[in-house]
Amino acid sequence: MLPYTFKKLSILIKRTFHKSRILQIALITFLWFIAQEISLLSRMPIPGGVIGLVLVLALLYFNLLSIRSLALGAEWFLAEMLLFFIPAVPAVLNHQEFFGWTGLKILAIIIVGTMIVIIGTAIIVDFSFYQLEKQSKPEKKQ
């Protein structure tokens, strides 16, 4: 009787998890919290978020966690990501020196630099993609 109840209960918990977005958000936050602690304790220069990402990939890979108990929560985090950036922007108010020449110069560097990186990366990846694709095509046919 008891193992049967236990099994039933675990199925019930799983089902609620698969449906509930809030529970999944809480689970992802909890996993991040653990990763953050690992990052602090091991004194690695790798941020907690990235350790958490690798941790979740490992959990998914070894079937310890099903993708359905995270998917809804992850969807929410990715969709509302911009909100988490916004509070950092008014920090310019703390730096009066940016309201002037230095600020314009920095803005120009960021704009021009980002354009160079976007265009450069896109071209090199596109180029190498077709080079590697050409090499691997005959292999596929064999």
Partner: peptide, 23 residues
């Protein structure tokens, strides 16, 4: 920022959430 720091902290779990599409 004292009042909204917790919002920025959510960037951590948001990074973790990238595991799902990558997987």
């Amino acid at each position: 920022i004292r009042g909204t720091h917790w919002l920025m902290a959510l960037l951590g779990p948001a990074t973790v959430a990238f595991a799902i599409p990558i997987y």
